[in-house]
Amino acid sequence: MSARREVAIVSYAQTSFAPHTKLNDAELVMEAVTAALERAQLPRKQIGFCVSGSSDYLTGMPFSFVGALDAVGAWPPIQESHVEMDGAWALYEAWVRLLHGDIDTALVYAFGRSSLGDLQDVLVAQLDPYYLAPLGVDPNSLAALQARALLDTGRASERDFAEVATRCKRTAGGAPLDAPYVVSPLRAHDCPPVNDGAAAIVLAAGDRARALCKRPAWIRGIDHRIEAHSLGARDLTRSSSTTLAAVEAGVHTAPIEIAELHAPYSHQELIVKEALQLGDGVRINPSGGALAANPLMVAGLARIGEAAQQILDDNARRTLGHATSGPCLQQNLVCVMEASS
């Protein structure tokens, strides 16, 4: 097989990740897409491939991605696809498509309005419909089971959770250990906020990337893996799928400087960090991560965008973006980016 084509992130943009937006999906996407394209100075009509990520269950309306297409200007008709997943997986699809060699640019976007429903109810619909969903077990409770399992191993303490929360949320007074539990052992500061938002990334291949961007974030490796759905069938304290994806993405071939980890719960950052075998010298989640803002279906793509931005801004030479999907880190994606090709 010949050497793979080089593909880079050349721009990233996002809306504000507010607790609640007054915009609809197309209006949100318009804001993020327009900003990302302007930063790349890429006219809409020159986009080679377009792919998005979203979930109908956030707004309760089927086909939500269809309306969002209005923000793209899909005329003349465009090459376009959609994953009912976090936008990080849309980025993966775009990367695969660019490897074909016939097109040079791709637009990836994700949108999600988590504030319209109650996520503790909505996300129950993600579970096994025979054994789990009928119990009504909510995402905070599932995460708490995972957190307890981690505490039981002795590899982490509630103080460790609080330290993650303090760093990510940057709240005044930190994350007190005498705060009440939401679902023990998780406190409010260990759980993600509810946010709405959209994010967009422009990808380009080879010389096109160099032409569009002074310092592209070259994708050195990207891979994703899924684990069993049943919590009882896996070791919740390890993220084996993250480890697998990290190896495939070449995380360990050189040091990572900054890692943006999609860990909606504080203990999950510890699990993902360990699965990635990131040393203590790695800066983790300077953006605040999903503990600071967690627009569902967007937060994973945003991690990759934030990690890419560190290279675009010349703050780092080698960064990592991670995205997760499903209960207790069931599915994970790892993307390694570098400054030079």
Partner: peptide
Amino acid sequence: MMPELYLA
């Protein structure tokens, strides 16, 4: 919602 998770 996202049945790939349950079907993996």
